[in-house]
Computed example of a mutant assay.
Amino acid sequence: MAMQSTTKRSLSRRWEDYQPTKTMLVWACIAAIVATMVVGFSWGGWVTGGTSQAMAATAGDNARGELASAICVERFNAAPDKAAKLVEFKALSDGYTKRQFIEAGGWATMPGQTSPDRLGVQGCATALAA
């Protein structure tokens, strides 16, 4: 009968002696891939193609609205009766009537368009109210 050694092997020695099976290696790789994807989509800022297209469309709409707003303010300021229109605009009480006033004035309708841009009208009303 061989006598068993009662001494404990060190962690580094046990690590050197460990020989994982192919199945264990495959599952470890799969777990690493899944963990990478979870971390990437949760905290890493990764997005799907559909999400990135929606974000790009929203950014485009916002940029178009900001541009339309700036043009609207410039047109309003270039009008010959600017002072009277500004007094009339500031006398309006709620945002809806202010937006209607800007739409009716035609300042928010961009060249080549038949109707004003909604975000442009909102931005113009906000800028003129300030």
Score class of each variant (00 low, 15 high):
residue 61 D to R: 10
residue 55 M to L: 15
residue 43 W to M: 06
residue 77 N to V: 02
residue 80 P to F: 03
residue 66 E to P: 00
residue 99 R to W: 09
residue 38 V to R: 09
residue 26 V to G: 03
residue 60 G to V: 02
residue 98 K to F: 07
residue 43 W to T: 04
residue 14 R to C: 11
residue 7 T to G: 08
residue 68 A to V: 02
residue 52 S to G: 02
residue 37 M to Y: 07
residue 24 M to I: 06
residue 104 A to P: 12
residue 14 R to T: 11
residue 101 F to A: 07
residue 27 W to N: 11
residue 20 P to C: 01
residue 65 G to M: 03
residue 17 D to E: 15
residue 105 G to V: 10
residue 44 G to H: 10
residue 88 E to F: 06
residue 127 A to N: 02
residue 49 G to W: 13
residue 83 A to N: 11
residue 24 M to Q: 14
residue 109 T to V: 15
residue 59 A to S: 05
residue 22 K to S: 12
residue 100 Q to L: 15
residue 68 A to G: 09
residue 84 A to D: 07
residue 115 S to K: 14
residue 65 G to Q: 03
residue 12 S to Y: 11
residue 94 D to S: 11
residue 29 C to M: 15
residue 80 P to G: 00
residue 50 G to Q: 00
residue 41 F to W: 11
residue 67 L to Y: 06
residue 31 A to Q: 12
residue 59 A to K: 04
residue 130 A to T: 10
residue 82 K to V: 04
residue 120 G to V: 04
residue 54 A to F: 03
residue 20 P to N: 01
residue 8 K to F: 09
residue 14 R to L: 15
residue 103 E to W: 04
residue 121 V to I: 12
residue 11 L to Y: 14
residue 47 V to I: 06
residue 71 I to F: 04
residue 111 P to I: 05
residue 88 E to C: 03
residue 33 I to F: 15
residue 76 F to Y: 06
residue 36 T to S: 14
residue 87 V to E: 11
residue 45 G to L: 07
residue 90 K to F: 00
residue 70 A to S: 03
residue 43 W to E: 04
residue 9 R to C: 11
residue 3 M to T: 07
residue 61 D to L: 08
residue 49 G to V: 11
residue 91 A to P: 01
residue 15 W to V: 13
residue 65 G to L: 02
residue 103 E to M: 14
residue 125 A to Y: 04
residue 97 T to H: 08
residue 64 R to W: 07
residue 75 R to L: 05
residue 67 L to V: 07
residue 120 G to I: 05
residue 104 A to S: 13
residue 48 T to D: 09
residue 76 F to A: 02
residue 54 A to C: 00
residue 106 G to W: 14
residue 6 T to P: 08
residue 128 L to Q: 05
residue 23 T to Y: 01
residue 82 K to R: 15
residue 63 A to N: 02
residue 38 V to Y: 06
residue 19 Q to N: 03
residue 116 P to D: 13
residue 34 V to C: 09
residue 29 C to R: 15
residue 2 A to G: 05
residue 79 A to M: 04
residue 86 L to N: 06
residue 76 F to P: 00
residue 129 A to S: 13
residue 103 E to F: 05
residue 70 A to I: 01
residue 66 E to F: 04
residue 114 T to D: 14
residue 55 M to T: 05
residue 97 T to L: 15
residue 82 K to Q: 12
residue 11 L to A: 14
residue 34 V to I: 15
residue 36 T to W: 13
residue 7 T to H: 10
residue 65 G to I: 00
residue 63 A to H: 01
residue 99 R to V: 08
residue 88 E to Q: 13
residue 96 Y to M: 10
residue 26 V to M: 10
residue 13 R to H: 14
residue 82 K to W: 00
residue 112 G to E: 08
residue 7 T to A: 12
residue 60 G to E: 03
residue 27 W to L: 14
residue 1 M to F: 13
residue 126 T to K: 14
residue 56 A to D: 03
residue 123 G to Q: 00
residue 121 V to S: 10
residue 68 A to D: 09
residue 82 K to S: 04
residue 69 S to H: 01
residue 48 T to L: 06
residue 102 I to L: 15
residue 127 A to C: 02
residue 73 V to N: 00
residue 100 Q to E: 12
residue 80 P to N: 01
residue 30 I to M: 12
residue 38 V to S: 11
residue 81 D to W: 01
residue 89 F to C: 05
residue 111 P to E: 13
residue 62 N to R: 13
residue 122 Q to I: 07
residue 63 A to Q: 02
residue 82 K to F: 01
residue 46 W to G: 02
residue 63 A to D: 01
residue 90 K to S: 11
residue 40 G to V: 08
residue 6 T to M: 12
residue 68 A to T: 03
